[in-house]
Design a protein around this nucleic acid. Structure first.
Lengths: 226, 226, 226, 226
DNA sequence: TATGAATGAGGTTTCATTCAT
DNA sequence: AATGAATGAAACCTCATTCAT
């Protein structure tokens, strides 16, 4: 987990936008502090001190404290979106893809509590979040899900009597609610087990049972453990 | 809706703790302001001015600003819990009860956006929320749901291969995620339609299909709006 | 002079708007500091410390640091306008009135260097000054002058071949330029002598000489020494 | 007018100290920005950005931000002093010279609002201005005026019962006050008309009327524009 | 019960300025 | 000749909170 907090993106993605060291230190510092405190309880003074730079430098690279949070979140999201797409390579079938996506989603929250905290707890009460870059990325990510659902409906795996956006929301709502309490109370998140249980409910809920017999996808429970 | 913001509980629940007028004005003021702004963006000065009292009076009745928020939320919760129990009177069967509860839940969010906003957006990022009275009430409320689920499992309506708390979380997560965006963007929430769609997914997801044939609960789709 | 800096208006005009003590201390503090430094070099911290209050209190009573300056200036202006009108009581003839007004003007600058400094040096470079209350008062004051000039033109004392506003501006420009350097370099201002010299130039410049013989006002130089 | 803002002095006065392009860009940038904002509201960041250089470069050429302002002002002054002397060539008589000088003065303000703004509004509240190069130039310029006045007194055109410096101050005060509001509110300045009106007042105010009959200088009104 | 006055503590932000390259 | 990175110092301001009355 530690290697995630500290400059994860530069290390792993060396080609990624090369920020000046000060900027990186500041973003890392915020990530570190968010492990222990809510964003509102973190002061710019702390961020700077922790980063080993002056407060003023924060304002060279970020419009304000909140912009720093949004940029950090955006970096997480960009990274995650790429990963989520990547993980789907070679997987066939809507349920298989969904399952993988749910697992990846839970897994990133399990690995990156800070990301989870920012996304689920910190930013949502800020009204300007909903016009920010990371929110745009969140919407971009949800397209990934929609596409899978649409695909599933088209090929008959997924029922077509429910508005797809609603299915998306239930899936995301399920994932988040299940992870949320664990993030809040610092309890462990087990991607495998949780994916299992979640998909067992959700897949049955959204599978196509027209005729109940001739459904092509087979029992969606089959998709749960492999 | 308006009658909800303004001293709703005193009016409707005359037996309820009769607060002094100053206290009521302050709580009403916060409720009113929360319609337009996040809690963090609301100042005690505003609350006081809006209530027609002085800032100092806030501290006569509330430990601090956040305590005011928590007390307001607790009032909403108390009221809602009573209502939720009340609405279940005379309903038989776990799915019927669940459905009613889901509807009541969505309906209160539809009617009382401020309640929804506080509960879903404002308090969750405060760590002391999780040791507060309103959070205790939230847990108390979730027992209602658990009890219904347990009942359903016992009488064979609901599958027993999934941890009941997880089912709770998926149900609540679904409700919340679906309502959340609507609350944030001030879009309408339609309790009937949303309950329908939600239960159509969830009930199938959690119904008991042991053997797929001999399930006792009948097709859960039957429970959806007659 | 000292009694001018410290709460001059409350002391002298007890009926005047009764400000809370903190407000008065702050305004007095600024007046005091302006004797030694330019406004831009004075910090809110200094003002507060000097006043024996906290910086926060400044912002209770004044929108910002500049608003404090404007309010202080406005108090000076209000006071001065009343005085200027008062001093004209019982004086007859445009030149006599003008002379008195010029003397009063120079005299207030001589007595109240801080007033002079604010008005001639500090505020003029702030663009919002020109929409401020004290600027409104400055314009109100200049009406006093215009009225005298108009009166002089009507009764034939003052020439009518020059736009009255221009005459006003020359008079004020003369007064100010003459006082300005003295204020800047802390040199003494002698109201009597300066009024004498100034009026000797200006009165001849604006007197009515139509026909050079039949002018009613007599040689305006006569008005200079009583 | 525009050609005035942009490197006017290098273009017109090729022999003038040939500044490196960076320096010129910075000075031009400040001139440009001063058209819209007060000096205090202009940041070095803006100046640099606008000039297309980095902030650090400002400190290569100028001691500090204020030094930049003073140098810009000094350039204006140097240029203006040369012009003012030049314009007097071939003019005879104190009043004729005065008139020409007043016109030149007003005219430069009319043409070069930024110059006028700096001189009349920006620098005067800075105490170190009064020990700066541009202030030295201002004093040098005022010698021009004094000399004309002295000449007029000597040859009997101008009265000798008023201290010459005071006459200077009234003349300058008149010019400035009349131009000041126009500069502040971006109203047009008409050199010809304003010179006319001003001189009509001032010349009569300072002309020699010894014996009121036998004055040598003739009616100073004669000097007013034919 | 309520208020007017004042505060403490720190928050965010700004900006001129410097320095190594 | 010019820059990119970073800083120091403080400025302005906010806001929850307290206390004497």
């Amino acid at each position: 987990m530690a290697r995630f907090e500290i400059s994860q993106f530069n290390d792993r993605n060396p080609k990624k936008k090369n920020h000046p060291p000060g900027r990186t230190k500041i973003a890392d510092s915020l990530r570190l502090l968010l492990r222990e405190k809510d964003f509102n309880a973190i002061t710019t003074a702390e961020i700077a001190k922790n980063a080993g730079v002056t407060e003023a430098l924060i304002y060279k690279y970020f419009k304000d404290k909140r912009d720093l949070l949004y940029q950090v979140l955006a970096e997480y999201m960009e990274h995650y979106i790429i990963q989520a797409h990547h993980e789907l390579n070679g997987i066939k079938g809507a349920f298989n893809k969904l399952r993988k996506t749910i697992w990846t989603h839970i897994n990133v929250y399990a690995t990156d509590r800070v990301f989870a905290k920012i996304l689920m707890l910190e930013v949502r009460s800020f009204s300007d979040y909903y016009i920010s870059e990371p929110y745009r990325l969140v919407k971009e990510y949800s397209v990934l899900l929609s596409d899978i659902i649409e695909e599933g409906i088209k090929n008959g795996e997924i029922r077509d009597d429910i508005p797809p956006p609603l299915m998306c929301q239930v899936i995301l709502g399920g994932i988040e609610h299940v992870c949320l309490t664990r993030v809040i109370f610092n309890r462990e998140i087990q991607p495998d087990a949780m994916t299992d249980d979640l998909t067992r409910i959700i897949f049955r809920g959204i599978e196509n049972r027209k005729g109940d017999r001739e459904k092509k996808g087979g029992n969606p429970d089959n998709f749960l453990d492999k």
